[in-house]
């Protein structure tokens, strides 16, 4: 099963810090997650970069990027510091 690592901003609504899923691709996984979120929180899914095993989906096959067991999907936001 692929793992969606839940960003802290979504943890309260999802009630867990990881979502395990048999979704075949990123789009299906997102659809599963979206169903469990309020409209307000759903918007966050559009604002963060989706990464599969550290790689942006826009450098893979976008939302059609297939997911294999053990793949990790993260949703991250611009960050900086040092």
């Amino acid at each position: 099963m692929a793992v969606f690592v839940v960003p802290p901003a979504l943890e309260a609504e999802l009630g867990q810090d990881v979502v395990r899923s048999d979704a075949p691709d990123v789009a299906s996984l997102l659809a599963e997650v979206r169903l469990r979120l309020s409209v307000e929180r759903q918007a966050l899914l559009e604002r963060g970069a989706l990464l599969v095993n550290g790689r942006s989906i826009h450098r893979l096959r976008g939302l059609d990027t297939p997911l294999a067991p053990e793949d990790q999907v993260w949703l991250v936001f611009p960050a900086a510091g040092g």
Binding site: V5, A49, L51, W74, L75, V76, A79
Partner: peptide, 8 residues
Amino acid sequence: MTTAGRNI
């Protein structure tokens, strides 16, 4: 979170 997601 971002560095973890980026795997770095």
